[in-house]
Amino acid sequence: MEPITTINGKAVALPIENIDTDQVIPASYLKVTDKAGLAEGLFQAWRYLPDGSLNPDFALNRPEALGATILVAGRNFGCGSSREHAPWALQGYGFRAVVAPAFADIFRNNALKIGLLPVTIDEESYHELLSHIEEDPATMIEIDLPNQRLIMPGGRAVPFPIDGFARHCLVHGVDQLGFLQQQEDAIAAFESQHAVAVNTLQPN
């Protein structure tokens, strides 16, 4: 995974609460066995008109949003299905971070695993950010991961929480599976005394 330190990018806003992962990418795109083509399905119902052409009124399709790498969205972003296809599609489209006042748990976990940065900011800063984007659709923001702060247009720094381990992994490009594999001795020791038995290979 590519290390992430600072993300400087154009922000685009979808100021809607509870955007579920079926909206991020509908299930009809989930029939792949790799990650190819998922970006096409991103926000499908909103991004395209019924005839398949781009919906000119949708925020991501406006000319000034072209090249945006930071998505700003409402509370509880990514609720619903656990599909990792949702962060894959966002990343495939070009997003590097999602900024919201709150994230659904599974989406947040999935995003952190693939290096799509979920940035939780307070409601007041969120609304301030929305007004900046409304005034200037080419609004640039900076996300400084090592110092856990988002720099608003105008320079105000907004702190955001992220667990130390995830931050370490993202900043240094550390792979979490590799870390788990290093726990082999502890896992084997645990298994040798663990009482909960089940055997899927053979009914009892």
Partner: peptide, 22 residues
């Protein structure tokens, strides 16, 4: 609980997950 595909890989390989206590 539900997990994403990266975590499916973690469990397949190590039978474990990295988790903060909810």
């Amino acid at each position: 609980f539900g997990i994403g595909t990266s975590e499916v890989g973690h469990v397949l390989a190590t039978q474990c997950l990295l988790q903060y206590q909810p």
